[in-house]
Computed example of a mutant assay.
Amino acid sequence: MGLIILIIVGGVIGWLASMVMRTDGQQGILLNVVVGIVGALVASFLLNPLIGGGNIMAGDYSASSLIVTFLGAVVLLAIVNLIRRGSAR
């Protein structure tokens, strides 16, 4: 059950991050889920030690963990855009 919730939350967070970074038209629902879950990993390794917050990979679905995961997904999309286009937009 936790995996299904992680996939749903990862998809929503990946979709929101792609809307913010204006890459929504380039990726489908599968890539939104991947961005959300990988964004959660980025957040747990890079952002949690810096700003704190929970970790949705550990099953913590609080507001702070969702915000940190969203920031991780945005950072991930910025890095991908930087590598792909040479600008983070």
Rank of each mutant, 00 (worst) to 15 (best):
A73S: 13
Q26L: 05
G11H: 08
I37E: 01
M57P: 03
G54F: 11
G54V: 14
G39Q: 08
A88V: 14
G25P: 02
G59R: 11
Q27L: 07
I8A: 11
L3N: 09
L71P: 03
V34E: 00
V12N: 02
V9E: 07
A40T: 09
S65E: 14
I5K: 05
G52I: 12
M1F: 15
G14K: 00
G11C: 07
L6M: 09
I7Y: 08
A17I: 03
V38I: 09
D24N: 09
V34Q: 07
G25E: 14
V80E: 14
N48C: 04
F45C: 12
V74S: 01
L71I: 12
Q27K: 06
G59F: 13
P49C: 15
L76P: 01
T23I: 04
V75E: 06
N32Y: 06
V35E: 00
D60E: 13
D60H: 08
N32A: 15
V35A: 06
V34H: 06
A43E: 12
Q26N: 11
A73H: 04
I29K: 00
I83Q: 15
A88E: 10
I79T: 11
G36I: 03
G10Y: 01
V42L: 15
L76Y: 07
G52W: 13
V33A: 14
Q26C: 00
S64H: 08
V34D: 00
G14Y: 00
G14I: 01
V42C: 10
S64C: 00
I56F: 13
V34M: 09
L76E: 03
V75N: 08
G39F: 04
I7M: 10
T69F: 05
I79D: 09
L6F: 03
L47V: 12
G54H: 13
V75L: 15
I56Y: 12
Q27S: 10
L71Q: 07
G10A: 01
L77G: 00
L82C: 08
G14H: 01
G39K: 03
V74D: 06
L77N: 03
G53S: 07
R22E: 02
T69R: 01
I56S: 13
S87Y: 14
T69I: 10
D24Q: 08
N55P: 14
T69D: 12
L66C: 14
G39Y: 06
Y61M: 11
A40D: 10
R84T: 14
N48W: 10
L66F: 10
R22N: 02
M21Q: 04
A40M: 10
L46K: 08
I4C: 11
I29M: 08
A78M: 11
M21S: 04
V20M: 06
S64W: 01
I56L: 15
I37W: 01
T23Q: 03
L41V: 08
L66Q: 13
S44V: 00
S64E: 04
M57C: 09
L6I: 05
I4V: 14
G36S: 00
L76D: 01
G39P: 03
G54N: 11
I79Q: 08
L41P: 01
L50Q: 15
L66E: 14
